[in-house]
Design a protein around this nucleic acid. Sequence first.
DNA 1: GCAAATTAATGATTTATTCAAG
DNA 2: CTTGAATAAATCATTAATTTGC
Lengths: 145, 145
Amino acid sequence: MSNRRWCPTPEQVMVLEELYRRGLRTPTAHQIQKITAHLSLYGNIQGKSVFYWFQNHKARDRQKLRNKHLLYQTLHFQGSSGMMMRQTWRSIPDPPKDWLMRSYGHDSVMVMEKLGPTPTAIQPLQTLQLFPLTSPAAANHHSSS
Amino acid sequence: MSNRRWCPTPEQVMVLEELYRRGLRTPTAHQIQKITAHLSLYGNIQGKSVFYWFQNHKARDRQKLRNKHLLYQTLHFQGSSGMMMRQTWRSIPDPPKDWLMRSYGHDSVMVMEKLGPTPTAIQPLQTLQLFPLTSPAAANHHSSS
DNA sequence: GCAAATTAATGATTTATTCAAG
DNA sequence: CTTGAATAAATCATTAATTTGC
């Protein structure tokens, strides 16, 4: 018997999906315990399976949404393929206060190399030169040690 | 059209979120100018909108995380006698077999009154008592499409 | 109809970020 | 600046669907 992987029964999937529909996204340890106890009535299951199920379901839900947005964006990009961003820069009409002027950063040039997992969609932003990101966290983790 | 308020397009939100994810938290004036220029390709936008977006996003992110931590602590102080039920489930060991017979009834019992259309499948879950969903989105189960 | 081959779903792991504490 | 805790992103791996040739 290959215990390699949990194979959920339809009842188990139903319960999990219902919980997800009701808004449960990251159950606590306690909730996982209870859910596991219930689901074990329909078949063998471990707590980590419940945990993994919610992780995967949530992640793939968001991935789906993201792909939808990417597609939408792609479609809109086709109209304005050759974009120049030169003269739009004067369009900060009313910087209300001086907070736009407190530039305390030295700009390290960074480009958005990839905008996402790019499963099957085009990614026009890859070729877009974006702005320098003075990324405190990203630069920190790599340079030290 | 009352343009009193910026209505971000999905593309604009995507770009902003991507920048935020990459670590940009408080863009400088220069960065705001460039970001605004880019985002104006997708719709009207002012520099102050970009500034406000980052302010709000950072604040709400921190608030969310703080609430999550507080909730986590609260939930775990109630019933764990000595054993820390952590959510570092990367290595969820074998679930204690006594989970199955743990009394999980001391919480408010929630009943799944109806599980849905149930196309052709079995439906033994109608009589199943489910668990309390102590979830932020669980309160409003208006999404019964 | 039926399996081998191929593709799509999804369970399980690993890796990178994140915020906050020390 | 470093580290702890938790997670979400990305990836690996296996099962289910499906296609295809017979």
